[in-house]
């Protein structure tokens, strides 16, 4: 008796042969119960899997096949047009409708951007550069009356948003116009 058990490659070759002709049975396999068991388990797994897939298909009701054929023929008759791609704005609109949080998040991100631009805008950058001069300035120099028109508009926008958020308005009011 050959003492060498089948290698994993030999075992797989027994169950999943590459060629079409049956491979000769190794002498060892004919007499080794352990190797026979291992090959049998693997073969059983394949057969069970194959049988289960066939079972799934055979268990499908006739209505499934009719519906599938009907769906294919409808697409074929309709010129087999592919599913039209939804234009980007509509897609965005649809996703915002489905997820209002996305709209609120987008609005918040936009506000942060506006605020950042307000702080780091050209006028502000100049102010930051001349920090010592600012430190020497009188309190009156920083009074709201001296804000530039652009800064004032930004300030008003931020206050308006603050008011809206503090009033607990419905999320739909926060959606951009036309959404």
């Amino acid at each position: 008796m050959s003492a060498r058990h089948l290698t994993p490659d030999e075992m797989v070759e027994r169950v999943f042969p590459v060629g079409e002709d049956p491979a000769p049975v190794p002498m060892h396999l004919a007499i080794c119960a352990e190797c026979q068991h291992r090959v049998a388990r693997l073969r059983e797994g394949l057969l069970i899997d194959r049988g289960a897939l066939t079972g799934i298909v055979e268990a499908l009701p006739e209505e499934f096949w009719r519906a599938q054929a009907r769906a294919v023929m409808e697409r074929v008759r309709a010129g087999a047009a592919p599913v039209p791609l939804v234009p980007f704005p509509s897609r965005l609109k649809r996703s915002i409708f489905r997820r209002p949080a996305l709209a609120v998040g987008s609005l918040a991100a936009a506000l942060v951007l506006v605020a950042a631009l307000s702080i780091l805008g050209p006028g502000r950058q100049a102010a930051v550069k001349s920090e010592p001069a600012l430190a020497r300035a009188t309190p009156a120099a920083a009074a709201p009356t001296e804000l530039s028109p652009a800064d004032r508009a930004d300030d008003e926008l931020l206050r308006a948003v603050d008011r809206m958020l503090s009033q607990d308005v419905p999320q739909s009011d926060l959606l951009p116009e036309g959404v």
Binding site: L47, I48, G51, A52, L53, G55, I56, E58, A59, L60
Partner: peptide
């Protein structure tokens, strides 16, 4: 959605 597989045991 797929009917339960027939398990040949």
């Amino acid at each position: 959605d797929v009917p339960r597989a027939i398990e040949p045991t």
